[in-house]
């Protein structure tokens, strides 16, 4: 089991191409933990903005009558990948992991796989 800071550190060091990671509470839009990388992203801004993304998707699923959960959300920019992964554990309700990757260095399949494992290990 890892704590929030440990999980972000693991994500930044073990996932190739990681340029920023955050653990965010989407009820408040505030970050519980952030870890800057070489990307220079303001992760608190990213936390607030991506909270709206997660909420919008949840609302949409609700309106469509889908009784399902979000496993992850992938946003592809021209030079970056942004991965959002809501936590599924008992202690992680209402939280999501946010990971920004440099597209030219990252392996998307590997990054998703690693993020899944980090999420499973995370105890908040």
């Amino acid at each position: 089991m890892t704590d929030a800071a440990g999980a972000l550190k693991q994500a930044m060091t073990s996932i190739e191409g990681a340029i920023g990671a955050a653990l965010v509470d989407y009820n408040s839009g505030m970050a519980l933990a952030t870890l800057d990388g070489p990307g220079g992203l303001d992760l608190n801004v990213a936390a607030a903005g991506n909270t709206d993304v997660v909420r919008a998707k949840m609302r949409t699923m609700d309106m469509l009558g889908l009784q399902d959960g979000i496993e992850d959300i992938l946003i592809t920019l021209s030079s970056q990948y942004h991965l959002i992964r809501p936590l599924t554990g008992r202690t992680g309700k209402g939280l999501f992991l946010y990971l920004a990757l440099d597209k030219s260095r990252a392996n998307l399949a590997m990054a998703r796989h690693q993020l899944t494992r980090i999420e499973a290990d995370l105890e908040v």
Binding site: G29, M30, A48, T51
Partner: peptide
């Protein structure tokens, strides 16, 4: 409300 956004 998204408090993070509110602050921002």
């Amino acid at each position: 409300v998204n408090v993070g956004r509110l602050h921002l």
